[in-house]
Design a protein around this nucleic acid. Sequence first.
DNA 1: ACGAAGGCTATACACATGTATAGCCTGCTG
DNA 2: CAGCAGGCTATACATGTGTATAGCCTTCGT
Lengths: 225, 225
Amino acid sequence: MATPPGPDPEDLTARARIRDAALRHFGDDGFEKATIRGIARTAGVSPGLVRHHFGSKQALREACDEHLMKMIRRLNDQVRADTTLSDVSYVGAARAAMAPYQLYLARSLADGSAASIFDEMTRICEEWIAGADAGRPDPPDVPAKIRAAVFTAMALGIPVLAPHISRAMGVDMFSPEGDLLLSRALVDLYSHPLMTPEDAARARAGLDRLAGARPPGRRTEENSP
Amino acid sequence: MATPPGPDPEDLTARARIRDAALRHFGDDGFEKATIRGIARTAGVSPGLVRHHFGSKQALREACDEHLMKMIRRLNDQVRADTTLSDVSYVGAARAAMAPYQLYLARSLADGSAASIFDEMTRICEEWIAGADAGRPDPPDVPAKIRAAVFTAMALGIPVLAPHISRAMGVDMFSPEGDLLLSRALVDLYSHPLMTPEDAARARAGLDRLAGARPPGRRTEENSP
DNA sequence: ACGAAGGCTATACACATGTATAGCCTGCTG
DNA sequence: CAGCAGGCTATACATGTGTATAGCCTTCGT
């Protein structure tokens, strides 16, 4: 635990307070609805200071993205550097450190920005998938990077659509109980393939047929639901 | 093919044109950034007429939600009513009918609204899951509804994060080629369980231990990415 | 043919917000 | 002590937007 997730140097400064307030406002209200005045109010500074430090609202957002990215990379490096990968307390600490930024991350991803963050996550996921491909009988017919991107999108769909999941579960997804329920649901889903090998073969055949049949035109197999 | 997906009665009217334009603007730019003036321009009417027909921007949005919901239900009913469920042309037609609304749906879901649409999809998915539960040796330890909600969120993560997936793939996700690639990636992911039964059992044990150990407090097992 | 009803437009208003500018105050440096 | 650099504030400005109002024009019933 070299750098316990928490106050960096450079924290406590007004600039950092503004950035944190922006992270929260952007996360709670979205970039458009959030106002510089509101952010300044939360940070305990004047609206003018926000401009003084960041130049514009868009630049403030980019500073937030950069900060988040730095934090994600640091957490990933920490977990990766640790030889005892299964140490739950570390994962817990990492998740706790991420908690305040999840809302921002979700919104940021949803509106198409935060591209570098998504790409970084895809990269991490790709390494993981590439490892799994090694011990696998059938050769995948889709590049690992693409499968990684699709799975990353699906995984991120959970925090992005958190309000809906929480509503369905009856408890806040981010509460301890909700988190437990969600984890159990995921374990169940992850450990049961949704398609049998026969289904998959049939689907692949159908896709091949479509690919050869009609280069231009709308296709027809299941995927988006 | 009783009602070929396309022009309802009541279409071609200015009201319908405004609604369609709003669907597109909300989808392309988001609810906040979209403007009544821009919507009116696209619909070929004056901004005042929008208010005349819908009263307010928020009411216009609700009308869009209602329309989308009606369309989803109709499509679901059609597919369900058709005895030849595997008829690809039908699924294709359904997807083609949904295409113009996917962007709107994605944004609408992402900002927490469109709750009834998510719930409806969860309900549909739940029926599907309940059917799969029947022929399954191990009893699930999480209610079907919750698993359905989680899976729905993951599935919807794909259209919601479409720009990122398209970027990773190198082709537009909604183009024929991109669609094919995405379908293949999904078939591969769906037909390979991400956890072995042993992994699952170990994870469940860990979750049980956590559940009993610390009722309050942050938990620690894998789930969010 | 006449008149009213309603789809439809043009204009104006109120307001919130991002942005720019001028200046204050504190702390450091020579 | 003088002065000055930079964090910080207060105020003003320009603009885009949702909303409200008054009136035109087409259509349809009588």
